[in-house]
Design a protein around this nucleic acid. Sequence first.
DNA 1: GCAAGGTCTAAAT
DNA 2: TAGACCTTGC
Length: 520
Amino acid sequence: MGIKDLLRFMKPYVHPIHINKYAHKRVGIDAYSWLHKGAYSCSMELCLNTEGDKKKFQYINYCLHRINMLRHHNITPVLVFDGCNIPCKSQTDEHRHSKRKESRELAMAKLKQGDTNAAIEMFQRAVSITPLMAYQLIQVLRSENIEFVVAPYEADAQLAYLSSLDADKGGIAAVISEDSDLLAYGCTSVIFKMDRYGNGEEIVIDKVFDSAGRLPSFLHFNKELFTGMCVLAGCDFLPSVPGIGIGKAHALVSKYRNLDRVLSALKFEKGDQMPKDYLTSFKEALAVFQHARIYDADSKKLKHLTPLGETLVHYSGEELDFLGPELSSSQASAIAEGLLDPCTMKAFNKLLVCDDQLKKPTAVNNAVPNRILKKETTTEGCFTIVSSCKTGTKKIAVVNKTKPDSSFELLSNLKQLISPLNDNSVNIVDRTIPAKRSSVVPNSNPFKRLKQTVVIDDCASEYSEVTEVEHLEMTPDSQKSVESKFVNKTGVKKMVTSGKKVESKSESNKNTILNFFSRV
DNA sequence: GCAAGGTCTAAAT
DNA sequence: TAGACCTTGC
């Protein structure tokens, strides 16, 4: 929802731009806003969660398309994902959750009646973005070497923090989002409504404060007063006092130029209409926008968006929980790196390396006795999980092409992740391969044809007849193409797609991305 | 003039 | 779902 009517109110300060304005710069992206848009086209498949339905991964294609468009314009995208919900937003979250539940029930009823169109419309309202969906995108980002961070709490706060840093310290020059909250958090440049070609509308907050003679005037505003105005107008953390909208909020802040004086005047004017705990709630909401807990990649710890002021600095740890409860350094890094689900605090791989798929052999299992459960490739290396349906054992191979040290890091991460499965049936093998076998390192231009070949032979061949060769290609259609050839010991090549042998050596980009996941 | 509430529409393919 | 736009009422 963001700040009520803020974008409409700020219309005179909104300028159409093209994203190439940020060429050679780093730009942050509110990943959930893209996931939401991408989920629109596959909302029914996501809600029904049909086993083996490739269409439910369509949202990943949407995000990749946009990422590749940015890279085409020489922009470095940094995707920022939402983490756990913060306590003071729970009312908004509950409201959204119940609305979605309602829509989902309606959609199911329409589906039963055979009214598919009405059902799809309802599913579009019912779809919610889950941490698992975010994780599935994160896997693709890793394989594409695209920067991302999962915020401990609100992605908006994390984006505002990155906005405040210099580029050489991981900072970003602008944020792409649909949420006006970004302005309240103090982001300097926010691009709204960016389309698939890179056209969007931008607000640069410094220009807002500097521009004389334009209405509404923000000449005597600073970041704190602006954020105060946003909270007064009504935000996700606190509804406005009856009769106060963005216009009145702006007028009050312009007149008093001090938030304490604004609140006193408001109390005098509204009397009993003002909720009893409004002053406390206002200060908490303001504090969230100013000092929310964010992840600092440099120290690998949680930090406040801006240092706590005189009042808050004396609060105890628990009293500051409304800014997002404190997390240990290891928890914060594991969340930020996309290894832990920020809501459940459980490792994501439990959801992916799922034994259910082994117990019920699929067409893939029938066609290829030893199914590759999970495969992740980066420019530096990859790992593969190979499972034997015959013996029920699993083997993980870590293959490294450029930095031998990082395979050990990857191995230790994997060991940590699969600890619940870490019994005799799981084998982890380091397969660092010589540099001469490494492939061409992809560059950031998605329109240039790239070729990266990784050979994972010994691990897979011990387990079955198959050896996998993977080619990763970027095409003008801005999608990553994953082509898997299974080569048996006699050298006969077969293409395997979702358990069916196909003759074609290449697939459409859409299918190949989905194929990547159908094998997970 | 402004807040508040209602309706309409785009979001993706 | 959320923003844009319109109408109504204070």
